[in-house]
Write a protein that binds this DNA or RNA. Structure first.
Lengths: 341, 341
DNA sequence: GGCGCCTATTGAAACGTTTCAATAAAGCTT
DNA sequence: AAGCTTTATTGAAACGTTTCAATAGGCGCC
């Protein structure tokens, strides 16, 4: 049997004041004489009083806990974002209760429901691919929520978006500027909105001949597909990868095929991996501003909690194209230029 | 003003029964007639009742929340472990309230204190380098806690340890077996218990000539230090790195110096990075069993919560040495063997 | 038909806070 | 000195559950 902790009642008793007064002192609210204040404070430290925030939450109908639901953690983008979310929690004086959906809509629904029953003050959601049920659940609960990426528009929620269209256009402009025309985009989750936007932007671009390759989870189709797409007269001269894992497998496959970067093919990677700057050659990447996303999400959420009725905001953040060594002019145009000299 | 959610009272009212009966039905406790049971269940779904777990926690003095404090997330080992902790949470029907210490003892103390005031049922702690105050705080609070790694022995807590000594011995045996003698160990945090154990084990080993290199956070001393240690008559033939970042910088530096792996020097990396298997050559690594650590931690914690008085357990888990392409016989012995043929 | 024993149900206390309305004391104004 | 405001303090209600003791009805038993 655990010894029960000292309570506010114990403090009040020891200080010889009422529970109400003790509460006032410890919360700095109300008017209390200096004498009693000292008495209470001393009593509190004497018996090692620590407020029971569960009781407070019940009474105030406010937990100061924010629910955070993400598909996973151990992948560059998610772990960076998760860390950023936790780092901001201290600033905003809330705790984070985190659940994992594994990207599965059913689990997502259940986990979010359990967050709601914990009376979280708000929710930060990185949605799965089919989040409709979960979104309905949240909307109907009237708990403030911020959706991070993957949802393009929903008037019921505040949304923090990444401008994947602009990002892809930046990538294309960079590649076209270098002289690339045939560009291969290797994707993993073609059904995600994020991916769809990127694909659409690529396909709609002028002056290039884009191709899409949807690879498998094990990436075992990559060697064959790549060696085919990198040979012959109309071989691709640039590859865009859609996430860190993808990038890793692509690099490895290329090395296995003896294809040089950027001499034989240029590489641009979405979702900067931790090792992006450190491999040879350093990778040209699209950096996702995880810190800024988390910051915006928190800010929107806090504003929403303070003013439930104000109009919803949809914030769009820019990705940043970091040009490093893995992109250069395609071989043919380099040769052509050399022969001109 | 948010519309207040339906409560158990509303359910009972609608079903025409007492609150107690409604509670019995929804928790499957006590004896309730089938007729009333149906009534209650129907009423509950009708008005979309969802139990308020804050109220339940207060009454039961049990939150079913476990506090989890770690130094950070966005590093291979921590993100893998964090994910494992969250994955297990569903199995054990607890939620996780996570806080970050940043490795700072003061923050660690404060964050853990705030977990305690949230009345967490237990704590999983990955301690900072000076955790004494935090440990005292937890011990004195009588909240069950499991310490993960970095603390060798403390009778007040259940502890899950990694056998860093055995791991280092495995590494040494592997290298010695290949014919290495001069071995360089590159470390980042020489003050961590973890690191100290590894260093001591290396220094105590027979038949080798070990060297320790404590590098800086920016690793800008690495090129000079490595080029010195890899040249001359008594050059090192094998390098052990102590974490993923370390490994990355080492690989990059070696490549910059034009030193081949494993031809010129062998590499063994502690703390398997996600990309360990995918770089060229694939890395020989010491894998930390993050899933097993998390599983053990949860199991111990749940047992402790069920039986506070039972003796503390200290579990020691083995790391796994994964031999891949980055280690081979040292150059000299290879040449010697070739000349014999 | 009185007694005891199940079965089902309920009212009320308790969990530890916050907060509101009420009160008491004290100071000021006229 | 009566009336009014201000300043401190308090008792009690409320938050939404769980749980315990009490009760009432039904039933069998002698």
């Amino acid at each position: 049997m655990r010894k029960s902790l000292p309570t506010l009642r114990d403090v009040a008793l020891r200080a010889g004041v009422s529970i109400g007064t003790a509460s006032h002192v410890l919360n700095g609210k109300g008017i209390v004489s200096d004498a009693r204040r000292d008495l209470v404070l001393r009593a509190a430290t004497d018996i090692g009083y620590r407020a029971n925030r569960v009781a407070r939450s019940l009474r105030q109908r406010r937990t100061h806990v924010v629910g955070f639901c993400a598909p996973m953690i151990s992948s560059a983008y998610f772990s960076a974002f998760t860390e950023a979310v936790h780092e901001h929690s201290a600033v905003f004086e809330h705790h984070v209760m985190q659940v994992l959906s594994g990207g599965d809509p059913v689990q997502e629904f259940e986990r979010v429901e359990s967050l709601l029953s914990r009376q979280v003050d708000g929710i930060i959601l990185m949605p799965s691919a089919q989040p409709a049920a979960t979104l309905d659940l949240i909307a109907q609960s009237h708990v403030p929520a911020v959706i991070v990426d993957r949802i393009l528009a929903d008037e019921r929620f505040d949304i923090v978006l990444l401008d994947h269209e602009a990002a892809m256009r930046d990538v294309i402009a960079h590649l076209v500027g270098l002289g690339h025309e045939r560009i291969l985009f290797i994707v993993r989750h073609p059904d995600l909105v994020t991916t769809r936007v990127r694909i659409a932007t690529l396909l709609a671009a002028d002056g290039i001949k884009p191709e899409i390759l949807a690879t498998t989870n094990e990436h075992n189709d990559l060697p064959a597909a790549l060696s085919e797409r990198l040979s012959g007269r109309d071989a691709v001269t640039a590859i865009i990868t859609s996430n860190s894992i993808n990038t890793l497998w692509t690099l490895r496959t290329l090395r296995g095929l003896g294809i040089g970067i950027p001499d034989d093919v240029s590489i641009v990677a979405f979702d900067e991996p931790a090792w992006g700057e450190l491999v040879e050659p350093p990778l040209t990447v699209v950096r996702q501003p995880t810190g800024a996303i988390a910051g915006s999400a928190w800010r929107l959420l806090m504003e929403r909690i303070a003013a439930a009725a104000s109009p919803r905001s949809h914030i769009m953040l820019r990705n940043e194209l970091i040009v490093r060594g893995s992109t250069s002019e395609p071989r043919r145009s380099r040769q052509a230029r050399r022969s001109v000299r």
